[in-house]
Each structure stands twice: as structure tokens, then as C-alpha cells.
Amino acid sequence: MATTTYLEAIRQGLWEEMERDPDVFLMGEDIGSYGGAFKVTAGMLEHFGEKRVIDTPISEEAIVGAGIGAAVMGMRPVLEMQFMDFIACAFNQIVNYAAKMHFRWGQAVPLVIRGPSGGGVHGGPYHSQNPEAYFAHTPGLKVVQPATAYDAKGLIKAAIRDNNPVIFLEHKFLYRRIKEEIPEGDYVVPLGVARVAREGKHLSIITYGAMLYVALDAAKQLEHEEIDVEVIDLRTLSPLDEDCILNSVKKTNKIILLHEDTRTLGLGAELASIISEKAFEYLDGPLIRITAPDSPVPYSPPLEEAYLPGVGQVMDAARRLAAY
């Protein structure tokens, strides 16, 4: 066991998969000698060489398109979006080519598109977005967002070994803030499996990504008010682990859906529908969504801090819900 940051855990996962499978290669903008905008791939060019750590022109559609081409030939490309906001530039290749390929003619596309998403670092409207809902809405894609260093390493490995296109959303706010003891060497966290991050019996907060820490913080403070909060970390956003979600509903009967992405048709809306369709009779209170408002992510610190869901908001909602 060694103390490892969230960022270093991703790097370790990539490194070990590159060592394990010669068909794995990395491609993206400035990932080679520069080591990536956040240094996730630092040192990898020197170790693996320029045939496996490939710098590209600023051409997101070509990066993903070329990744798809290499993937159908049996390779396992891992493509970096310098910021996940730029994944919009590759939307066509992802949703029209990669996602639909296996359905149309049975051709697998083992591909990972990874990069930093999320706010909290004053990146403004184009360096802070959470694009998960576009892709979770697209059949044929898997969408992953780790919240812990342990999961970051285990999930990137599972994503690389998966035979489908996987959108791997790293949360840039967590890159260097999260440090944990994680095992050295190989382990995998399977896709599609959520985690009970904290056991509780009065209500459940279902969340993922950086909001996990907001939920845990709120849960800790609510202990003083004798509200015992369970926290579910989804880890994989598509496909959802319905068993884990519904088990928690059946246990606590009161649910808060918390995410950093905007509200309308965000993941919370889907979770609310699933819960109401499949566990309505277990609910003892309204399903409460806590999300960013329906607006672009603002830049200036006071604006962004007010925009992102915070501990106070979660605690208020928990008190209201606990009273039912």
C-alpha cells in the first residue's frame, strides 16, 4: 500500500495496462513530451515510445475517429480529451460511429475516451463542464466517473479491458486533492457496480464524482442531528447499478439525488424515474434533486461557488426529508 493521488492512480492504471497489453496505446493533444495538460501521462512517452504515446493535432473528431479505426482492428486506444468540454467537438464520431457500431453490424469498438471534467477550479464555461448526460443518454456507450483513487485505478483498467466505447470522466477538482492508500499492482473495479460509500439508515444520498465528498461531509455533520445518512457512489453512470440503488431505497426509504451536472434531464431525473417505477411503495418522502442550476458554469469564484451544489444545501434537504 502506498499513498497515491487520484491523478497518480489513473496514471498507474494506464501504465500497468500498457505494460500488460501491447495493443493498448494513448493518443491525444500534448500527452507526449509535455505529459498532458494535467500531467496524467507524464513520463509515459519516455518509457513506452512514440508509437504508444501519440501526440495529435488539435482535431478531436480525428482523434476519436482514428481511435475507432484502430479499435476495430483489435487495438485498445485510450484517447485523451485535454478537457472534457472539448468532447463536444468529437460528438459525431462518438454517438454516430462508435456507439452504434456493434448494434449495426456486430463490430466491437474497444475504446476509452478519458479526460478532466467538472468544476470547482474556476475554469469558466469551457473548462468546467460535466458532459455525462449526453453520453449516458446514448445507447452503446458506457460512462464512468470515479470519486476515489482506488476506484480511479480499478475503473480505468476495467474501462480499457471492456469491449465497448467507454467515456471515462475524471474529476479535475479531485486530481491532487484526493490522496489514499491504494494497493500496488493489478486490481480491477468492475463497470456497472455502484458502492455504498457510507452506511446509514434514515435517508440515502445517491451521487458520484466530486459530489461524493459533499455528501460525505454533509452526512458527517448530520450525525450531530441524529440523522443517519447512507451515501451511494454510483461510479458507473451507464449502465446504472439498479440493484444497489433500489436496495438503498428499500433500506432508508428516503432519497436525495445529488450531482454537479445541470438539472434538466440530468442523471437525477433518470434515477428518480427508476426509483418511482421500481420502488414507489418503499418511498416515505419526495425524491429530492440537488444539482447545479440550468446554466453554463460561471467563471468568477463567488459565482461558481454559488453555482455548485454545496454541503449546506444538502443538509437543508436532508433535514426536510428526514422530517417526513
Binding site: G65, A70, V72, N96
Partner: peptide, 18 residues
């Protein structure tokens, strides 16, 4: 979607080179 094949075929060529 027209043109989408060109980067994909470039990727097939890339796999050949790699």
C-alpha cells in the same frame, strides 16, 4: 454523416503502422 469515414480509415491505417 459525410466525412466521418476519413478519420476512421486513418485510424485503420494507423493500426497498420503501429
Amino acid at each position: 454523416m459525410l466525412g466521418a469515414l476519413i478519420p476512421v480509415m486513418a485510424g485503420i491505417a494507423l493500426s497498420s503502422t503501429l
